[in-house]
Amino acid sequence: MPRWGMVIDVKRCIACWGCTIACKEEHFLPPGVFWNRILIGETGKFPSSRKLIYPILCNHCSDAACVEACPTGATYVRVDGIVAVDDKKCVGCRACLVSCPYQQRTYYDQTVKDREYFPGQGKTAMELIGEKLYPFKLGTVIKCNFCMERLEEGMKKGLVPGRDEDASPACVNICPVNARIFGDLDDPDSVVSRLIMEKKGKQLKKEFGTEPAVYYID
């Protein structure tokens, strides 16, 4: 069984926000909910300061703080490494949300559901159809799932995640500069594993002991 992971090439990334918006469309996320975003910062002093760009998403940690915190087992690490939420088990206690050092979870309640992209003007046809196509359960916590439905559907057709569009996460597909590479961390010969080895991939907040499956190379 593979363990899915991602390498984000910060050197390539130009902070176009394609990942963020494609992700919102893929999962019909309401306003204010992001499963992908970009953090922009700066380090150093003029004139030798550097711009910092970090695209972030759920790290799908193998030792996830959220899984540890979840009192019901709704949040769990799947055998393929994806950290998923079973909305039938989630009671909405938000312990996971508070526990996540990366703050990658959102509590989906009526307030969130009621938000409109054009405030006060009603929901668009896209928002309405999204509630049918990709429904979220009220009072549960939602988060990036590495587009597991895409992965599963694709693999059923014999496609390879990370290589074939229809079996890869939406943020990987949209990236115009190929800054996102998806693949099997358990396979030492996969592109992701090799990049992590060669470019000394870094995980965010490694000190929390969460073992993220998302690596950054520079």
Partner: peptide, 12 residues
């Protein structure tokens, strides 16, 4: 359901 995981979760 919050009784499900007393082994790891403090809430349980």
């Amino acid at each position: 359901r919050m009784i499900m995981k007393p082994n790891t979760s403090e809430l349980s």
